[in-house]
Amino acid sequence: MTAVSMPATKTRAAAPAERRGRRVRIGRIAAWAVLWLFVLITLFPFYWMLRTSLSNNRMLFSDPSSWLPVAPTLGGYERVFGLATLQEAQAQGGSGASIRFWLYLRNSVIVAAVITVGQVFFSAMAAYAFARLRWPGRDKVFFLFLTALMVPPIFIHLPNFELMKNLGLLNTFAGIVLPYLFMTPFAVFFLRQFFLNVSREVEEAAMIDGAGYPRIFFRLILPMSAAPIATLAILTYINSWNEYFWPLLVTDPTNDDVRVLTVALGLFKSQTPQGSPDWAGLMAATLVAALPVLLLFAAFGKRIVNSIQFSGLK
């Protein structure tokens, strides 16, 4: 990680003109202002979600413009965790259907983790073969992989569903995980771009030392690409965490043993009585569902974000 210095500041001494210095300073203030504006735009909806999640859903629209929670209550969160009784829930405009939150959380963690490990690892292997090895038809196969990027998911979900049904994998973790476990075109494409830029000399030196491809891959390529791999891993994790349609498709509404959090959230939302949704409960559920990813990000994010580098791009 190269130290990020501010060349403009450092070199200002070299440019003696006072005016220029002031211009730079005004420019910097303006730049900061723009940056903070974006931070504000980013954060405001989250505040609004928080405010809504702490409101009483029935009363929500009696004061729609209030900046603070309307008739503040933790009812939304109680409904999400299944702590409210049916009467309590319906009195506040919820449905009171039972939710096994901790089970869904566990399921989501399992699914997202397995997909992330498998997909990143296998995609890295493939990316290595595309970026570094010479073999007949390589570019054609790569192009084929790339075209898979253009296939709308809706187009292939039905045949995949039939397949899972025939394999007897409906309602299993395997059924949810398999289509994403081996590769996604994006992951392969993403890593190939990085591997292309790993210095060839290092690789050849290792080869002269007698290292085989697996050794080069594990000992050289992977460590050298730790940053992009970490980036991809976290993106994959987030995407798997947020995946909704496929898990909904292959799981059974009457059996929630392998239900993941997003599906639970969707069902929670549509369980609300007719008319408008249980906004307070939905927002509470959304914030709660985002929390684990948030924590993950808080724990590793700094390191990951700081270390993301496109090494050696010319």
């Binding site: 809706i154 979900h157 039905l158 569903f161 039939e162 049904k165 409906l170 309602n171 909704y244 349609f245 909904l248 498709l249 292959v250 799981t251 059974d252 509404p253 009457t254 059996n255 997003t262 959230l265 969707g266 939302k269 549509s270 609300t272 008319g275 408008s276 949704p277």
Partner: peptide, 20 residues
Amino acid sequence: AAAGVALLSLALAACGGSSG
């Protein structure tokens, strides 16, 4: 139109689970 509500669900779902 009443379906801000319609949510996630809508989408997709080609096929259903081995439910029922």
